[in-house]
């Protein structure tokens, strides 16, 4: 019973991931400049990779006919999800920094802390 519920939660997370991927791809296509598109890409990375991996782990835990293999699948899924969670923000951070250093300015802009830091000499270049 409890494992049935866990399995359905897993399926729901996978479906949520698919919807997030769709939203992210629409955003990648329709947003105006690089930084806004980066926002959509991060939605795709966290929502489209982290949630489905957690869902896959839960789903495989609930499938009893897999035998001992289901613990392997669940473990691999959770560890991969952890690494996606660690690396996705770093990827968008590095991309944004590289774009800023290449001279692309955010278009609807109120405050640019990175530019201020460079001007003060806190950060190089």
């Amino acid at each position: 019973m409890i494992w049935d519920i866990v399995g359905w939660i897993g399926v729901a997370l996978i479906v949520l991931g698919a919807i997030m991927d769709l939203i992210a791809s629409i955003g990648m296509h329709r947003f105006r400049n690089f930084y806004l598109r980066l926002h959509a890409a991060t939605v795709g990375m966290i929502g489209g990779a982290f949630y489905p991996l957690i869902g896959l782990g839960l789903l495989s835990l609930s499938l009893e006919y897999l035998g001992i293999t289901r613990y392997y699948i669940a473990g691999i899924s959770f560890v991969s999800a952890l690494f996606v969670l660690l690396t996705a923000p770093v990827g968008s951070h590095v991309l944004a920094r590289a774009a800023h250093r290449a001279g692309i300015k955010p278009e609807p802009i109120n405050v640019d802390r990175l530019q201020e830091d460079i001007g003060k000499g806190v950060m190089e270049e």
């Binding site: 660690l86 690396t87 770093v90 590095v94």
Partner: peptide, 16 residues
């Protein structure tokens, strides 16, 4: 190299 954030996460990932 890149910033401290990127370096730290790269070290963790490189170990695994």
């Amino acid at each position: 190299g890149l910033t401290v954030i990127a370096k730290t996460i790269t070290k963790i990932t490189f170990a695994t």
